[in-house]
Every structure is written in C-alpha cells, then in structure tokens.
Design a protein around this nucleic acid. Structure first.
Length: 881
DNA sequence: TGCCCCACGC
DNA sequence: GACGTACGTGGGGCAA
C-alpha cells in the first residue's frame, strides 16, 4: 500500500483554532473552541489525505536549545491565555481517542520533531504533508514533503509545494530561513535586521540568493541606508537565520513504524464529543447518531384524519404550538404537507387535506384569541394564505426570538433551539427527508413523529426563550416590533410587485444584440481568439499572458480581473473597456433580466420576494428569490431595469420614500457631536460640510474631488470599513486613508469620543446595542489577534448605527401599516430597501400618502437631529426618483 | 455540489 | 510591520 505521512504542528493548530473561533464552552464551563477547531481540522485531514502514518508534535514548553544560543528567544511572547492553555490537555485526550500518536521532546520545539521525521520520510520517498499555521515550516518543503498552511479560519488550508512557493514568493524552500534572518519575527523575538520587512527581504533574496551572499556583495545593495543597516546588524542577521533553522536531526525516539495509523474507533470518540457537546461533529460521525436518536422514546401522538374526529376538541386550545409542514424550502405557493399541534392536551398530527376541510380547525386558526406559538411566523402565515387559510393569533415565534437573542448565529434551526432552550433532542428536516437528489417522502408514521417533535420543541422552548428575551430587554423589540413586522413583511410578499414582462424581454433582446457585438469585438481585439469572457481564468490568460498587460492584483487562484483592476488597465488596451462594458451588460442580462423573468409568478404577473428577517448581524432585512434590494440604480443603463417595476393597476403610481442620511443622523444623535448635530439642524449638505471641516476650506472652495473623498469617509464611518477599505474605495494609499480618518476625527471630536466609548463598552459587556435594545455580541473584541480585534472594534462602532437605522425604518413600517388600516387606505407597501420604502398608491390617495408617509417616518423616533425623508413618485419605480 | 470570482445594492 | 480587512444575494465557471 502506498504510504502517506501527515505531521501536525499541534501548538500552532491549537493556536489558530483558538483565535479563529469564538470562545465556545460546554455547560460545565470548559472552553472548547480550540479543541473544536482542532477536531474539524483532524476530520478533514483524515478524510482528504487518508494518511497511513500520522503524528502530532507539541512544544515541550520549557527551555530549548535555541535559548542557549540566544537567551531572549521567544522572550517577548505573550503568555498563552489560560482559556487556551487549559484546552491543550483536552486536545491530547482527543488525540488519544482518535488513536493518533502525539509526541514532544525536551529541549526541542514541535518544528524540530516535524523536521526530523519529515527528513526521514523524505529520504524514503514517502509523501509527507505538514500541517501548520507557521510559515517557517515552508523551509522543509522538498519533492516529497509539502506544507499545508492554515489560512483564515482553520479548516481552510493553502497547499505549498516547491512550485507554489516559487510562484508566491519566488523563493526556494531553503531561502525561508534567510527571509526570517532578514525580517526577524517579533512573535519569537527574533530580531532580524531592523527596517527590513517582507518587501525588502524578498527583493534582496531575489537579487542575491542568501544572507551570506548579500554580505559577500554588500556593495551591490542599492540604497545607502539599507546598506548601512545590513552592515550594522550583520551578526544579528546571521544569528536570526540560525535560530530560524529547523533541526532535522533531533534525538526523536519515535520511528516511522511507531506512528503508523489505521483509523479510529468511533466508540472511543463519541463519549468525548458528547462531553464536549460537539453536536454537529456527532452528527458527522454518521450512523451512530441514528442509534442514539432511535433510542429516543416514540412520542404519543394523536393522528387526526377526518373532519369529524372528536380529537379536535382537545387539539384546538390556547395556547398551542403549531407546525405547518410544507413541501420544499420555498414557501410561496408551496403545497401543504401536514399540520401538528402541541398543547396541554398533548400532541396532535393532522393530515393536510383533513386540516383544510375542517371548518372548526380553520376557524380556530383564524381566531385572534386562540394563541399560537410557531417557528417562523411569516413563513407559516404566508404559506397558509396562499391556500386561502387565514392565521391569526400568532403570539410567539421561536425563530424570531432565537435571532434576537443572538443575531450572529449562522442559523436558527428548530433543532438547535430545542436543544438550547428545551433540552430536547429532535431531528432536522434534512435528517428525515434527505436532501438534494436523495430527498424522499417518509411514511406517515415517521412524518407524524417528526412534526409532533417539532411542535413539542416549539411548545417546550417557549418559556425559556421568553425569559431570555425579557432578561436581555428584548421583549418589547420582539412583541412590538419584529413580530408585528413579520406580518407586514408577509403581506408585502403576498401582494408582490407587478413586473412588466414585455418591457424586460425587450430590454433582454437589446442587450443580447449588444453583447453579441461586444463579444465579436473582444475576440477581434484578442487577436482573433475565441474564449469564454465570463471565465476570469481564460480572460486573465488573454489579458496578461497573451496581450502582456501588467498584472496589478492577483487572487488566490490566479490573476484578478475585477473592475477596479480593469479600470486601471483601460488606457493601455482598447479591449479592456469593452470587457468592462461586456461585464456590465452580462450582469444585467443574467441577474436582472433572466433572473427576474424566472421569478415572475405566472398567475399574478408579479414577483413575490422573500424578506429574510433573521439573517443579518445588524438587524437589517435581506431579500431573496428574487433579491429586490439590489436592483441597479447607480448607472443609468442598469437603472432602466426599474422601468419594469410597475403598479399592479393603471390608476396607481409608485411612491418611493427614503430617509436622507439616516445613519449619519443617528451618528450625530449617538455621539452628540456638536458640529455634526448643528450641521443636520441647519439642513446642510453633509458631505460638503464634512469636506469643509476635513480640508479646512470654505464652502465655495470645496471641489468635487474633496466632496467625493469626504463622502467616502462618511461612508466608511457608517459601514465600519478600515483604512485599507477606504484606500481601496478612493484609490489612494493606506497611509493617506488613515490620515483622512484622523482628520475626520479631529474635526468631529464628539464622534471620536463616542467611538472610543462604544469600543470600551463593548470590551466590558461583550456586546453592543441599538436604540431599541437590539443586541449583537462581539466576543472577538478582547482577542489577542490584532485582526480579529480590529474587526470587532469596527463592528462595535458600526452596529449601533446601522442597527438603529434598521430599528427606525422597521418601526416606521409598523406604524405606517397601522395608519393605512385605520384610515382605510388601499395603498400598499411593496418593498423596503434598508433606508427606503416603496409603495403602490392609487392616484386618489397620492396626496394623502405624500403627507402621511414622511410624517410617520420622520416622527417614529425623536433624535437630537431631525430625520428627513425624500419623496418621489411616478408610473414606474424608475420614475420615482 | 460546492467553491471561487465577480458584481449589484445599501 | 504584517495581518486581511462593511453586509448581504446571485450568476457563471470550474473541479470533484
């Protein structure tokens, strides 16, 4: 059998996992995030690499031979946080459970163990993979030995062999130590040569090859300053190189034969996973999990299969948890599969036909006073409405509740909710129905059990969820805002928006012709070669290999051909701007013409989007199938798509109302910054004002460029982008971007003070909140990892602003819906696009609406600055500008 | 089927 | 001095 050795740098992977994942813990308070990350990594490796030999090497944690050469070695390294340190023994237990050998050696580091075994394997020609987060180990690469470097996160790896190293850095493996000798490494306290960073080091090595050769030809080094530094720190450079060199002949006592690996015994692993509460991993282990599920006692479910069944008497009571099971994921026009109820009288299963035909049941559903608890209020209500069934009296939605309790959670499956809030283990739909091609219908009994378990989960988790909401001051947000909103969103989805199909098709034909012409022109300009312009790979080959245009940016997989790159290349070759045009038109054609046409409902002639209310971390909505929150507007060409969005009747118009600068107004309110508050009270153009303040010029001296840059800075503040992000937006250096931000803060000291304060608060509390108490946890705010921490800090600054904006427009939507009802108006809310509401308004109501809508939107919440709404209307969405 | 690149909106 | 850098959704290409 072919051999394959996998060597894992235990400390490095544990570290990566620890910092990549939020601080998970089991209910005994043991931290488990590093163990979890380590485990996912292991499982992935075992599956993908199928090693025949395996070893995890750990640092011995004491002095090593390197300290004898250089006593400051790793001197300034921050102490391993206790949250991580206490997980190392768990990782060893984990490895034992997996029967994976692990090893450490006094006086040596994990690197040296790996280096020694890798060399031994290399000499025997055994393919070897080293898994680490530490670039130093790249020095061990040979024909047989390759390195898998963890990227962001932990399960992602970047695969390095000699070729990849050459491509990426232009270096041979043995030059890695020269790199480190020159650059040093602050985390190991290896000094290197001060002033030499990655760029300089690479330049020197490309020119000279090694440190020794640099010093042999010091005269040829360009730059006097650099030459001086190199001369001055020669000893340090040589010592650094030595420290960075991995020992390949350490006195390792294990041999390759000792570390043969033949797989693990699930029965050893499962108890540990259970102790650590690795639910998802338990599932990944597969069939054993079925056994544990099967051990669950069957639920006592009353099946109701006829309209006159006496059991309805017991089934229909208040409160009841209600499950309406649908065919498929998408709920618009979905067929009904069955119903289930859970209440104080027990569990009930009702087949769809019986349910629909039973008037007492339908009356119960429609009865406002009969309280229903559901999972997914909007989904449930809308699905029933498509079948002409009215559902009232929804008093609780565990889906929404779970989202409000932690909006950053990836999903809010009922299974997770049941486990967390009801200590109940149920199956996911996917486990019962299978997915994709494997989807199949379960028998009636299995279905009844599954639906009953879901109803029970909703019923049993109610109190804990409600208590948690209350404890976190989220009850009002839930009851007075999100739950009512879910009904409004449902009505918007049901009503839909009329789309002028003919108009879209006509646009599509025009586009088709223009795309064909462009395609020909592009082939021509590419020297008569036909290729797939849609393929970034092929396009890159044409532009950069064939036409020899300069490479400005690379992606993980090759040349970048993104718009900002192409814009820079446009002056150099006629083909480039044609490609940009091509891209723009193809985007319109595929996403907006073809994509939208596919979504038009045959019967209604409308599109019925789905608003996702439980997705975003900030409280914003999102929209899918189709996404109506990203219809083009910026470029005229794309904006015309909006001409296809029309009122459903001829006597109606489209009315659009958007909040002007709502986020910056919220910032003014939150920060109470005098300048900002005053600017809004005076009704100033905020970007011009910012330009005046940041550039210290008078109003009439503000150039369009200054205003554009000021706008980008404001934009950056709102979205919490970094100096890097701003530099990309403005196409300036990071340094300049940083200076801009600093000047902004100097101009608005109140904003600066607010930002500092909110970050401090987030550090203390572990979360930030919006005006209506919406909460977002930011555990990374205390991370030792600079990246994670910086990101968390920007999140802390940004979320209260964006989230409060979301609160405000949501509240306005609820109030507008109330007013429309009270005043018996037949205008309909169609869309919400973050700071904009779009209505369909009978001409007879236009005047009323143009007064009502801004009035409600502007007064829904009182801030230190006025809220301002801009209105526009017209025969299509395009014209409402 | 899942990932990557690219592009649209706020 | 490096790190990898607002949030969403969706389409096409490509490798498995």
């Amino acid at each position: 059998m072919l051999k394959k050795l996998v060597l894992i740098d235990g400390n490095s992977i544990a570290n990566r996992a620890f910092y990549a994942l939020p601080l998970l813990n089991n209910d005994q308070g043991m931290y488990t995030n590093a163990v979890y990350g380590f485990t996912t990594m292991l499982l992935k490796l075992l599956e993908e690499e199928q090693p025949t030999h395996m070893l995890v090497a750990f640092d011995a944690g004491k002095e090593t031979f390197r300290h004898q050469e250089y006593k400051e070695y790793k001197g300034k390294r921050q102490k391993t946080p206790s949250e991580l340190r206490e997980q190392i023994p768990l990782i060893r237990r984990l490895l034992d459970a997996f029967s994976i050998p692990h090893y450490e050696l006094d006086n040596y580091e994990a690197d040296d163990i790996i280096g020694t075994l890798a060399q031994a394997a290399d000499q025997k020609g055994i393919p070897t993979r080293i898994v680490t987060g530490d670039k130093d180990l790249l020095q061990l690469i040979t024909d047989h030995v390759h390195v898998m470097l963890t990227r962001k996160g932990i399960s992602e790896v970047e695969y390095y062999d000699q070729q990849k190293l050459e491509e990426k850095y232009g270096l041979k493996p043995w030059q890695i130590i020269d790199m480190k000798g020159l650059m040093g490494d602050s985390s190991d306290n290896i000094p290197g040569v001060p002033g030499v960073g990655e760029k300089t080091a690479l330049k020197l090595l490309h020119q000279f090859g090694s440190i020794e050769q640099i010093y042999g030809n010091l005269d040829e080094v360009s730059g006097n300053k650099l030459k001086e530094k190199l001369a001055q720190y020669k000893d340090q450079a040589l010592l650094s190189k030595e420290l960075a060199t991995i020992e390949k002949e350490a006195p390792v006592t294990v041999t390759l034969d000792d570390i043969a690996y033949s797989g693990f015994d699930k029965q050893q692993v499962i108890p540990l996973f259970k102790e650590l509460q690795f639910q998802s991993l338990l599932e990944r282990l597969g069939e054993d999990e079925d056994k544990t599920e099967a051990a669950q006692p069957a639920l006592n479910v009353t099946s109701i299969t006829s309209t006159d069944d006496q059991a309805f008497d017991r089934a229909l009571t208040s409160p009841s948890a209600l499950i309406v099971e649908l065919e498929g994921e998408r709920y618009h026009q979905a067929a009904l599969k069955a119903f289930a109820l859970c209440n104080e009288n027990g569990l009930f299963f009702i087949d769809a036909k019986t349910a629909c035909q039973t008037s007492t049941f339908r009356e119960w559903l429609a009865d406002e006073k009969q309280q229903k608890w559901v999972y997914g209020a909007k989904r449930t209500r809308v699905a029933l409405k498509w079948h002409g069934i009215t559902l009232n009296g929804i008093a609780f939605d565990s889906f929404l509740a779970s989202y409000l309790l932690n909006p950053t959670e990836a999903a809010h499956s009922l299974k997770d909710i049941a486990r967390k809030y009801a200590n109940l283990s149920i199956k996911d739909d996917e486990e019962v129905y299978g997915k994709g091609a494997k989807r199949k219908e379960p028998d009636q009994k299995t279905l009844a059990q599954h639906l009953a378990s879901k109803a029970k989960a909703v019923y049993d988790s109610y109190h804990a969820l409600k208590e948690e909401l209350d404890k976190h001051h989220l009850l009002s947000l839930f009851e007075d805002l999100e739950l009512p909103l879910s009904h409004i969103l449902g009505d918007m989805e049901l009503h839909g928006i009329k789309v002028d199909q003919g108009r879209l098709k006509k646009m599509g034909e025009d586009l088709k012709e223009r795309i064909e012409t462009l395609t020909k022109e592009i082939y021509e300009l590419a020297g008569g070669v036909e290729f797939n312009i849609n393929s970034p790979k092929q396009l890159g080959e044409i532009l950069f290999d064939k036409l020899g245009l300069p490479v400005i940016k690379k992606t993980k997989t090759g040349y970048s051909t993104s718009a900002d790159v192409l814009e820079k290349l446009a002056p150099q070759h006629e083909i480039v701007s044609k490609i940009l045009d091509y891209r723009q038109l193809v985007k319109l054609q595929t996403t907006y013409i073809e994509g939208l046409l596919k979504e038009i409902n045959e019967q209604t002639g409308k599109v019925h989007t789905t608003f996702q209310q439980t997705i975003t971390a900030t409280g914003r909505l999102s929209s899918t199938d189709p996404n109506l929150q990203n219809i083009p507007i910026r470029l005229e060409e794309g904006r015309k798509i909006r001409q296809a969005f029309v009122p459903s009747r001829e006597d109606q118009v489209i009315l659009a109302a958007d909040y002007s600068q709502i986020e910056l107004r919220i910032l003014a309110h939150l920060s109470q910054d005098q300048g900002l508050v005053e600017a809004f009270r005076q009704g100033e153009d905020i970007h011009t004002k910012t330009a005046m303040d940041v550039f210290h010029v008078k109003r009439d001296e503000v150039t369009p460029l200054m205003r554009r840059q000021a706008k980008a800075v404001n934009f950056g503040i709102i979205y919490g982008i970094s100096d890097y992000g701003l530099s990309q937006n403005l196409n300036i250096s990071r340094k300049e971007a940083k200076a801009f931000i600093e000047r902004y803060f100097a101009s608005y000291p109140g904003v600066k003070a607010y930002m500092d304060q909110i970050v401090k608060k987030a550090r203390e509390d572990g979360y930030v909140t919006t005006l209506l108490h919406r909460r977002r946890y930011i555990p990374e705010i205390n991370s030792c990892n600079f990246n994670l921490r910086s990101f968390a800090e920007r999140t802390a600054m940004n979320t209260p602003i964006q989230g409060t904006a979301a609160d405000i427009i949501k509240k306005a939507m609820v109030e507008i819906a109330e007013r429309l009802k009270e005043e018996q108006l037949s205008s309909k809310l169609l869309l919400q696009v973050h700071d904009e509401l779009v209505f369909e308004v009978p001409k007879s109501e236009l005047e009323t609406m143009m007064e009502l809508v801004p009035q409600v939107m502007e007064s829904t919440i009182t801030l230190a600055v006025p809220l301002k709404v801009d209105l526009a209307y017209g025969p299509t969405w395009y014209d409402a500008k």
